[in-house]
Design a protein around this nucleic acid. Structure first.
Lengths: 236, 236
DNA sequence: ATAGAGTGATATGTATTCAATATTTAATTT
DNA sequence: AAATTAAATATTGAATACATATCACTCTAT
């Protein structure tokens, strides 16, 4: 059965992740209950859940605010994720790739080849890449068969998601070089998994995600420079 | 300000962690509200929090049960913790040990020497060892200065705590050998941190905790054998 | 005697009401 | 005119009341 609380949780989370409510916004219970057509009770449990997920900040007697993530926090989260998914690779390599997983990962790599080829001709299909990329990573995490590891990764994956929507859209700035490098990473990871080279698989995955973190930091720093530039313009 | 919900959360968590309520127990709202002298409302939010922490299992319209952990789950959790605290060591070694942290860790090692010396003479001070051990690990995690890492480790650390109370008391079975080995691990970890040898520090910490996981598994298997033996006796 | 269906009891989910505290606004004083 | 204080308003925290789903027990039928 689906409860009102669950509905509220998902809807509010969606609003945050999609960026419909700005970071720092004070989420009040009465407006939300009116907006979602339910009483304050399920709203309260939803807000409490989202706070524990890390998407909201709670201050006693003052309610919940949408958490603001600094670049450093996002990069930090990415480094933890890199370590955890590295562990996932290690576990998968140690226990050996089963046929089903191997197949799924191969298909991801194949699709990646097509996407990168098109990207080299300035025709990058962002949504397709993200779908494929998610499948690749989630398949490995699933294959590790470690419930705790999965839980930890799940928690971290959609923390910086809100901010990632910006990066994901990426202002058309995605250059073929970055995508190509990620694709090579995927190929190497799959290769290491197939050969059962656990520490290589771990290291490659870690590197892969740390590279992404660096891209995010670069993107932010550049966009900040741009902001300053436009500020200068507006002043002038 | 301290809310009723927070009081309820802490009290119920305590009951679970201390083993006052058996794993699998169905926690009902009305009895708890009477027991803690408050209405059902704060109880509900407390139960919801504890479920998200992983201490309770939730089934819609059926309420909350105290989570039962299998040996495999506990070992699994320990392996994840081993990876995460390994990462903490790596970060600390990379950025260099500050004086304060180095001092605190040194004191832990010194205290460990005394405790192991006494343990070799069959006079093991369990509580002192656990206090020191907690300080050692927490100090390293703090020194890593990674909020996400800390959060993830905090979550995992007191998940299997309930079960660990059993292991901690350990039936007087703590042999000097195991404690001595853990002490040597601590010494090596501190040495690696001091030298800034990040990958050695990471590997040593990982190994250290994986050893603990193995000890827990051994303990469980032995205690299960003992259970079977006593069963046989009672039958005979 | 056993299995199944139905009814009553019990527990959870939601709404509403009440209370306490924080914030804002207005008024008064310096 | 500005600042401080007090009063009013609004928002969160908790309790109570109400609705709904699950569970257990009983009764009936095979």
């Amino acid at each position: 059965m689906i409860t009102q609380s669950e509905i509220a949780t998902e809807k509010i989370r969606d609003q945050i992740v999609r960026g419909d409510v700005a970071p720092g916004t004070h989420l009040q219970e009465n407006p939300l209950s009116q907006q979602l057509g339910m009483s304050r009770t399920p709203i309260r449990t939803a807000l409490s859940s989202l706070a524990q997920e890390g998407l909201l900040e709670y201050v006693a007697k003052r309610g919940y605010r949408v958490k603001e993530f600094t670049v450093n926090e996002i990069v930090d989260a990415y480094y933890v994720r890199a370590t955890l998914e590295g562990m996932a690779c290690r576990l998968v390599a140690e226990k050996g790739l089963d046929r089903w997983t191997r197949n799924k990962l191969s298909k991801c790599v194949e699709e990646g080849e097509i996407i990168t080829a098109k990207a080299a001709e300035d025709d990058f299909d962002g949504p397709a890449w993200r779908r494929m990329n998610n499948t690749f990573h989630r398949t490995i995490v699933e294959a590790a068969e470690s419930p705790f590891l999965k839980r930890q990764i799940d928690q971290i994956v959609f923390i910086p998601l809100a901010t990632l929507f910006v990066v994901a859209n990426w202002g058309g700035r995605v250059n073929a070089e970055n995508i190509g490098r990620a694709q090579v990473d995927h190929i190497n990871i799959l290769d290491a998994l197939e050969r059962g080279e656990s520490s290589r698989a771990e290291a490659r995955m870690r590197e892969h995600l740390e590279n992404t973190a660096r891209l995010i930091r670069d993107y932010y720093e550049r966009s900040q420079e741009m902001d300053e530039a436009t500020e200068d313009l507006s002043v002038a």
